[in-house]
Write a protein that binds this DNA or RNA. Structure first.
Length: 515
RNA sequence: GGCUCCAUCGUUUAGCGGCCCAGGACGCUGCCCUCUCACGGCAGUAGCGCGGGUUCGAAUCCCGCUGGAGUCACCA
């Protein structure tokens, strides 16, 4: 009996070849997914992966599925899970199926799919693709040393045809077997969507473990199984998974033979997002943290535009584009395989360009939370504060890189004379006759009926430039400092109009007295 | 070490045999605009890793080298 099984297995082994077809899905049949595991805060490299998958689905009319890979209870956290969802929502990356949204392949968290995996494992076992492996890592290493086989080669597939006696003997010792995939002895070739044809020679990797002793399925099983079950046609993921692709193709082939899947998806491996030096942007690097960018005041449009530029471009002479434009033009085949470095300066420039593209009203709405968290506005804004905000918005929009720059720039508009602080660097560059200039300014404005930008400008020019013979730069500097306490501000005359005549004059007088 | 991937200005990207003694953007420098700072405009700076082929012609194709990266878990 065992002899028959042996020879049967032997012939089965010889017959194990990659015969399963690769998907031919195009257009709306395309199904892509984003399947992070919830560890730590969302990383910009991860977000770039999500973005490209999403853009590809939107470009092709396909479906974007959001699944969570939380099979490692020790590393996964609910907090991280929440952040992933929050991050995507904030960015406006929406999904057609998955977490919260639901869909025909529920549940979308691997921690809730245990029964599904057990069924698949049974099918794989009964179709002869899995076999029991009792050797521990230590024993495998010892075997290699004893056989003068390189230790790095790992497992030697020695239990492929374990005899029933040996099996019983292991079991009687109380050992429980892991389950390994019988990997075909064959070169594995696939056409990577971003890199072209890639071949891994036969023997590149040993039979690998899919199920832990005790029955807990590993990522190696669960990731391709879920992709298969969810009908994923295109797997776009980080370059770090490139060398595991032949393993997954081998598994897929088994899945097809076992009747679990019907095709092998196509793969595309996205270049790394690098940090300083030649290292992958690690979670230790602050700029890898999605929420740090948000807290600084990146807007989703800016961050996503920049991230898209890491490996892709919309055309030869343009790099500012909207999400809609990304979706209309994104082609996975155009993704550059080179690793790309995250450059904060460039990211900042892209973000500030997008901020300038915002309408004043939109901008105003977006800076409010930043003003609140900086304490410039406490709680809900008053009508007066909204009025100031609305007047200041167009003035500041053009001169910030991130929304977080706004509070310091406009704070002086929201405080009373008594609370106005005069910065050191503003005082330092004042001319000798600053007090004289401010006094002249006060005099010229006191009787100004029409306290508007143009009228203020006219009055001050007449008094200071024509009257005192000062260069404009010297003339308005002290006024700016008196009004704002700062060296750099939004346009002065507009600011004075926003403050109003009374407040402006009060500040000029307070300044003169303090000198 | 085995296997795999990658290689154009400081950075990012265009280039898929002649349109390129290599284009855009960011950065940096200078100038203009200007009440400061920005914005905007103009100009400048700087690159095909090396060596062989193939070809009338190569940044583009092939091979080798060098360099960099990833991966070889009962992590994901």
């Amino acid at each position: 009996m065992s002899c028959t099984t042996q020879s049967l297995r032997g012939s089965l082994k010889k017959m194990t070849f990659i015969t399963a077809p690769t998907t031919t899905a195009t257009g709306s049949d395309i199904r892509v997914r984003f399947c992070p595991s919830p560890t730590g805060t969302p990383h910009v490299g991860l977000i770039r992966t999500a973005l490209f998958n999403w853009a590809y689905a939107r470009r092709t009319g396909g479906k974007f599925i959001f699944r969570i890979e939380d099979t490692d209870a020790s590393r996964d956290s609910e907090e991280s899970y929440g952040q992933l969802v929050e991050g995507l929502r904030w960015l406006g990356i929406d999904w057609d199926e998955g977490i919260d949204t639901g869909g025909p392949n529920e549940p979308y968290r691997q921690s809730e799919r245990g029964e599904i995996y057990q069924e698949v494992i049974e099918k794989l076992k009964s179709s002869g693709h899995l076999y029991e492996s009792f050797l521990t890592g230590e024993e495998i290493e010892q075997r290699n040393i004893a056989n003068s086989r390189a230790v790095q080669l790992g497992y030697d597939n020695s239990e492929r045809d374990l005899s029933e006696e040996d099996r019983q003997s292991y079991l009687s010792e109380g050992r429980k077997p892991a389950l390994r995939l019988r990997v075909p002895d064959q070169d594995i070739t696939f056409v990577d969507l971003v890199r072209g044809e890639i071949t891994f020679p036969a023997g590149s990797f040993p039979d690998f473990v899919l199920v832990r002793p005790g029955g807990a399925p590993l990522y190696t099983l669960v990731n391709p199984v879920d992709d298969a079950l969810m009908g994923i046609t295109h797997v776009l993921r980080g370059e770090d998974l490139l060398s595991s692709t032949p393993r997954q193709i081998a598994l897929y082939n088994a899945l097809v033979e076992a009747g679990v899947a019907t095709f092998i998806p196509r793969f595309g491996h996205l270049p790394f997002v690098m940090g300083e030096g030649n290292k992958k942007l690690s979670k230790r690097n602050p700029e890898s943290n999605l929420f740090l960018h948000r807290d600084r005041g990146f807007i989703p449009e800016g961050l996503l535009n920049y991230l898209a530029l890491l490996g892709w471009s919309i055309s030869a002479d343009r790099d500012i584009f909207s999400l809609d434009e990304l979706c209309e033009n994104f082609e996975i085949e155009n993704v550059n395989p080179n690793p790309a470095r995250f450059d904060q300066k460039k990211a900042d420039a892209i973000n500030s360009a997008h901020i300038r593209l915002l309408t004043d009203e939109d901008f105003m709405g977006r800076i409010l939370p930043y003003l609140q968290s900086a304490g410039v506005i406490q709680g809900e804004p008053t009508a007066k504060q909204l009025e100031i905000l609305s007047a200041a918005a167009p003035l500041t929009k053009e001169r910030v890189i991130v929304l977080g720059d706004v509070p310091a720039m406009v704070e002086f508009l929201f405080v009373d004379v008594a609370d106005l602080k005069i910065d050191e660097d503003a005082l330092k560059q004042l001319p000798e006759n600053a007090v004289e200039i401010v006094a002249a300014a006060t005099a010229s404005l006191q009787n100004l009926e029409d306290f508007t930008t143009d009228a203020i400008h006219q009055a001050l020019s007449d008094a200071l430039v024509d009257g005192l013979g000062e260069k404009p730069r010297n003339a308005f500097g002290p006024v700016r400092t008196a009004i704002s306490g700062r060296r750099v501000t939004p346009p002065l005359f507009e600011c004075m109009e926003i403050l109003g005549k009374e407040q402006s004059l009060a500040r000029l007088e307070a300044f003169a007295q303090s000198r």
